[in-house]
Simulated scan of single mutants.
Amino acid sequence: MATQHAVRTHDDRALSVHDTGARVLDAITVVWHHGSPQTGALLRPLLDAAEARGVRLVSYARPSYATSSPRPGRDVASAAADVERVADTLGLDQFAVMGASGGGPHALACAALLPARVTAAVTLAGLAPFTEAFDGFGGMASDAALRAAREGRQARARFAETDEFDPRSFTARDWATLDSTWSALGEDAQAAEAAGPDGLIDDDVAFVSPWGFDPSTISAPVLLVHGGEDRVVPVSHSRRLVETLPDAELWFRPRDGHISVLEAVPLAMDWLREHGADGTH
């Protein structure tokens, strides 16, 4: 089980934090970065995988999700300062990071901007920066939200007023995963959406704007996990990142989509235990 509490930032915002606490002496701590939209709660598949490996698991809700305060104009890089504050509060000297979908860029931000503390990073179905050198829209079943975000926050907020999820974004394998192992993910996304669109809007604007850091500066080992059938974040994103990151490997899962790729979480935690215990590999 995980405990939930609030952490105050230096600019007096509240962050909703979940923490399983220490499991095994000298076991690694993993800070989980949730997808978009989610509440930041530690879902059962994550808890089960962490408990089986003695991993201490920590997560937090990004600004405007759950009970975390807004942070107007936030970029992807701003996650590092929030995670640093969480780590200081919990007494975490070093930790690994893992993020899924929209959490992937924020995990990379921590690896780039907290190099003395982040020992290794994993992203699952994560995005790459949208730059002139890389157009990340190709292969998306629905790119309208991110294209609206490129026009600015007001345009993305207007789009949110009529936005509806396109079921074509998920494969049959994705839907089967949501009906079984990761059913809590769908329930949590619904809870996040019921609380309002601001967190998702700010995420989308941050994704398509300058991230505030250069992934090529990340010195920690990074594992990228991506499904070949992903219609939400195409595998081209991880292929772009693996070319950019100095020390990265890509686990390509050809039959997985955006949700079913999460079945790799236990194996990814094993990878973090091997690569993130002391920052060496």
Score class of each variant (00 low, 15 high):
V118F: 01
V118W: 02
V118K: 05
T119H: 10
V122Q: 03
A125E: 03
A125D: 01
G126A: 06
G126D: 06
P129Q: 14
P129W: 00
P129R: 05
F134E: 00
F134H: 01
G136Y: 00
G136S: 01
F137T: 10
F137D: 08
F137H: 13
F137Q: 03
F137N: 06
G138P: 01
G138D: 14
G138T: 07
G139P: 02
G139T: 06
M140T: 02
S142P: 09
D143F: 13
A144Y: 15
A144E: 15
A144Q: 15
A145M: 07
L146I: 10
R147Y: 00
A148L: 04
A148N: 12
A148Y: 10
A148E: 10
A148P: 09
A149H: 05
R150Q: 15
E151D: 13
E151L: 12
R153C: 04
R156H: 11
A157I: 06
A157D: 05
T162N: 11
D163C: 08
E164K: 09
F165M: 11
F165G: 06
F165Q: 07
P167E: 14
S169P: 04
F170K: 05
F170S: 12
A172Y: 15
D174V: 13
W175T: 15
A176P: 00
A176T: 09
T177W: 04
T177I: 06
S180Q: 13
T181Y: 01
T181I: 11
W182E: 05
A184Q: 13
L185T: 09
L185Q: 05
L185M: 10
L185P: 01
E187A: 11
E187C: 03
A189K: 01
A189D: 08
A189Y: 00
A191S: 07
A194T: 03
A194D: 09
A194S: 12
A194P: 00
A194R: 13
